[in-house]
Amino acid sequence: MTIELSSPCRGTGVDAAAAAARRVIDGLLRAGDISGADLGGVADRLNAIADELDAAAPDLRERLVDMWHGDGNTRHDAVAGSENPIAPPLEYTALPDGSIEAVTVLGLPYQGPPECVHGGVSALILDHTLGVANGWAGVSGMTAELVLRYHHVTPLFEPLTIRARQVSVDGRKIRTVGSISAGGRECVTAEGLFIAKFQPRPR
Rank of each mutant, 00 (worst) to 15 (best):
G178D: 11
E191W: 02
K173M: 09
A182Y: 12
S168R: 08
G183S: 10
G184Y: 02
I162C: 11
K173I: 08
V169A: 03
R163F: 03
G183D: 11
K173W: 04
F194W: 13
D170C: 01
G192I: 05
A164L: 04
I174T: 10
A190I: 04
G184F: 03
R172V: 04
A164S: 06
T189V: 06
R185Q: 12
I180Q: 14
D170N: 11
I195H: 05
C187G: 03
V177F: 10
R185A: 10
V167C: 09
T189C: 01
K173S: 13
V177Y: 14
E186H: 03
R175N: 15
R185M: 06
V167P: 06
T189N: 01
I174K: 10
C187Y: 01
A182L: 10
R163M: 04
C187A: 09
D170T: 08
S168N: 11
V169R: 08
G178L: 10
S168D: 14
S179C: 14
G171Q: 01
E186L: 00
T189H: 02
C187E: 05
G183Y: 09
L193F: 05
S168P: 02
T161I: 10
A182K: 07
L160I: 07
A182R: 11
C187W: 00
R185E: 14
G171F: 00
L193D: 11
S168L: 02
G184P: 01
R175A: 14
R175Y: 12
S168E: 14
R165N: 05
R172G: 03
F194G: 04
T161A: 06
T161Y: 02
E186D: 15
K173R: 14
G183A: 06
Q166A: 10
R185V: 14
G178R: 14
R163I: 03
I195A: 13
T161W: 02
A164P: 08
T189M: 00
I162F: 09
D170W: 00
K173T: 12
G183C: 07
S181I: 05
C187D: 03
G178W: 06
